[in-house]
Design a protein around this nucleic acid. Structure first.
Lengths: 214, 214
DNA sequence: ACCTGAACACCGTTCAAGT
DNA sequence: ACCTGAACACCGTTCAAGT
């Protein structure tokens, strides 16, 4: 019963908690987007006075950072064998599936400077893989930052729909009965292309730094 | 005198114009960011009643789209010779220098679905180059969308400082007298790396589609 | 320690009224 | 046609007061 109230977003008699606030905020964000989340609506969802929130969270910006960290902590710490290429691919797919579960948050978070922080498990995993790939230790963070920003751009483009919109520009007259399914696998093929460009581009860069083409 | 008033952001006795509203909004955004731009402040800067704006712009979202389009229209339509790699590089550098002039706008715009629209000159130039690179016409928009989103991610990461923050993580103890200059050329080297990864990655993909590494 | 009500200084937008 | 004042339904946040 307490669990049911929790799941439906209503839960008083239970004490207000920093974690609980973030979790409730995430539910509202997933449903209606960051723009629609106000301290007052969040308080209403928690059946609490708006001002009570300020005893656990300093302000709205910190609230959103907390929600972001809550999601970032869910990134799986896959060890996985295989080549560094295989491992990069794995990390990319893990990141994507997590991002897809929280598109509204992605749209907001990637515009802020601390969308990905050095403490995040994604960043840790990425740097470890780059080291095993033989990237000079002085270059790991630079290359990691480049890959992260490029990749984030694609994830963001998927979240806000711009990748699909730009891709579909030419498919105006492709009348297909299985439109839905086609779009889904199409998105997967597009993602795979992005991952390949990044991995092969990095590989080429590691082999002969300074060269521009094959 | 009228020009001086215009430049300083004050200009009445002149009629209110859609273009003029966007230009004034851009000045405010460049100065203080999108979050600090309100219809009321914009009206104050234009020395106009807040409600007058609504006769030229339907709402705040449309205002921001208009500002974005104003900037997008400034993208240079360089023809330029050379290989398709050279041309892609040129477009990338052009895009970057425009984006750097309006970082605050970039931070906002790339979170929205229509940050880059099919009508934008950047997109047109990109698609033309991909065609000359021999990309099958059915794949031009997909590959264009992938490159655009990846590249946008880097530009966004530069605008919000996350690329620099993640890169600098290891440079904690690099005490340098010419810190400022070093940071600038460092950023340029990082950008060049991003461009190379994208171009060589694309080249590899065009040569043998389906392969993941060299 | 934790919660709350009232208040402050803002928002975007609507609409009827003015010229 | 263009502009405006008043008003509505919101915001985030502060602060003094309650338990």
């Amino acid at each position: 019963m307490a669990a049911a109230a929790q799941a439906s977003g209503r839960s008083r008699d239970v004490r207000l908690t920093e974690e609980g606030i973030y979790a409730a905020a995430l539910r509202l964000i997933d449903a209606d987007g960051v723009g629609a989340l106000s301290m007052r609506k969040l308080a209403a969802a928690l059946e609490v006075n708006p001002m009570s929130l300020y005893h656990h969270v300093p302000n709205r910006a910190a609230l959103l950072r907390g929600v972001k960290n809550l999601v970032a902590a869910q990134f799986p710490s896959t060890a996985s064998g295989g080549t560094w290429q295989d491992q990069l691919r794995q990390v990319a797919y893990d990141f994507r599936s997590l991002a897809h579960r929280h598109r509204n948050l992605v749209m907001y978070a990637f515009a802020s400077p601390d969308s990905i922080e050095p403490e995040d498990r994604f960043w840790q995993a990425l740097c470890r893989i780059l080291e095993t790939a033989g990237v000079p230790s002085t270059e790991v963070t630079r290359i990691g930052a480049v890959l992260t920003s490029l990749f984030s751009g694609f994830i963001l483009g998927e979240a806000n729909g711009s990748v699909e919109r730009l891709s579909a520009m030419s498919a105006a007259g492709r009348a297909s009965a299985t439109e839905e399914a086609a779009n889904s696998t199409d998105a997967d093929r597009t993602f795979e292309l992005a991952v390949r460009i990044l991995i092969t581009g990095l590989a080429a860069q590691l082999e002969r730094p300074g060269a521009t083409s094959a």
